[in-house]
């Protein structure tokens, strides 16, 4: 594996399966009396959040604490960051504090990549969502959830499984990370959205495109609904909320068109009544809550694989820096 997790495209098939298999082992922990492992004792992980995100931040924090890491929450709000301190100075500060890893959420696409490539800090950089670029741990937890339902078992991938992703692909970091990872794992991805919410050049992405949700539903094993922000309406991406949900929203009638084994996923937070009706959101086929639980396991796996073994911080200062982390055995 690479030393950082910035993009889902950084993960080879072996890397991805190793993370999913490790997460599967770590998932057992939630059923134990003591939900804690000593593995990352003495490692310092900083959650550097420039954007509000209670869910992702909490998920990472639980994962870090279950692995006994020292957790520092560095929130941009109310800190010197909001007073004009640059990303560089923040990173230098964290480096001076001895951060072994920085989990970063940033409103600017590419900020984690910048951090990883710079010599501002030496720890691992884990992307917890950057602008409209990527959210790789979300894609991992989505793949983990799909594998459990569609092809359970260690070492299994998602070969041939049909995944339909519906909604605001243009602004979605979840969609971008998912298309990379799902392809790596052998799944077939179809994006469904109004043309205004698909990025230019998407015809060259490794996926199918459709403007017609109803035609795709019967050929879907996993349906992922993306959040659509109401503000998009004012920027003329679609005429009205009502028209959007009629054409692209998930409802009870459409649920019936899915194959019996298919699941409905949502990365949250859901906008009920917009892209998904309460009937679907609360149905047993909707995995939204399960995804949250799986997020902790997947993030533990990523943290363990990046920080659990020997890292740069353990190496002498003059040792050559490598861009990859080897996995023993």
């Amino acid at each position: 594996m690479k030393r950082h997790l910035v993009s889902a495209a950084d993960l080879s098939r072996d890397d991805a399966l190793l993370i999913l298999d490790t997460a599967e082992e770590l998932a057992q922990l939630s059923g134990r009396a003591v939900k804690k492992l000593p593995t990352l004792r003495g490692r310092t992980v900083v959650n550097l959040f420039f954007e509000d995100s209670t869910r992702t931040k909490t998920s990472f924090e639980v994962a870090e604490k279950r692995l006994s890491a020292d957790v520092i929450n560095f929130s941009a709000k109310g800190s010197s960051v909001s007073k004009g301190e640059s990303l560089k100075d923040t990173a230098l500060t964290l480096q001076a504090m001895g951060a072994d890893a920085v989990v970063i959420r940033h409103h600017a696409s590419g900020a984690p990549a910048r951090l990883a490539q710079s010599d501002w800090l030496h720890g691992s950089v884990i992307n917890a969502g950057d602008g409209t670029h990527e959210h790789p741990t979300q894609a991992l937890l989505d793949a983990f959830t799909m594998r459990r339902h569609l092809n359970p078992g260690a070492g299994h991938d998602l070969a041939g499984r049909r995944v339909t992703i519906v909604g605001d692909v243009l602004h979605s970091r979840v969609a971008r990370s998912n298309v990379h990872l799902l392809n790596t794992l052998g799944a077939q991805v179809t994006f469904v959205a109004p043309p205004t919410l698909l990025p230019i050049g998407i015809e060259n992405w490794p996926c199918e495109i459709s403007y017609d949700l109803d035609r795709v539903l019967p050929k879907t094993d996993a349906l992922m609904m993306l959040r659509v922000q109401r503000e998009r309406m004012n920027a003329a991406f679609f005429p009205t909320e009502r028209e959007y949900s009629r054409r692209y929203g998930m409802n009870g009638l459409r649920l019936a068109q899915l194959p019996g084994h298919a699941i409905v996923m949502h990365p949250g937070p859901m906008v009920r009544g917009m892209e998904i009706t309460a009937e679907v959101a609360d149905s047993p086929r909707c995995t939204a809550v399960e995804q949250v639980a799986n997020g902790v396991s997947v993030r533990m796996a990523v943290l363990y694989l990046l920080l659990g073994g020997a890292t740069l911080a353990d190496a002498p200062a003059d040792a050559p820096r490598t861009e990859t982390v080897e996995i023993a055995q």
């Binding site: 696409s109 990527e134 971008r176 230019i200």
Partner: peptide, 18 residues
């Protein structure tokens, strides 16, 4: 707008300058 709008901007999630 942050960069040329095209294949790369779509992948990088940066606002396009068409």
């Amino acid at each position: 707008a942050q960069m040329n709008e095209g294949q790369v901007s779509g992948e990088l999630g940066l606002g396009g300058w068409p």
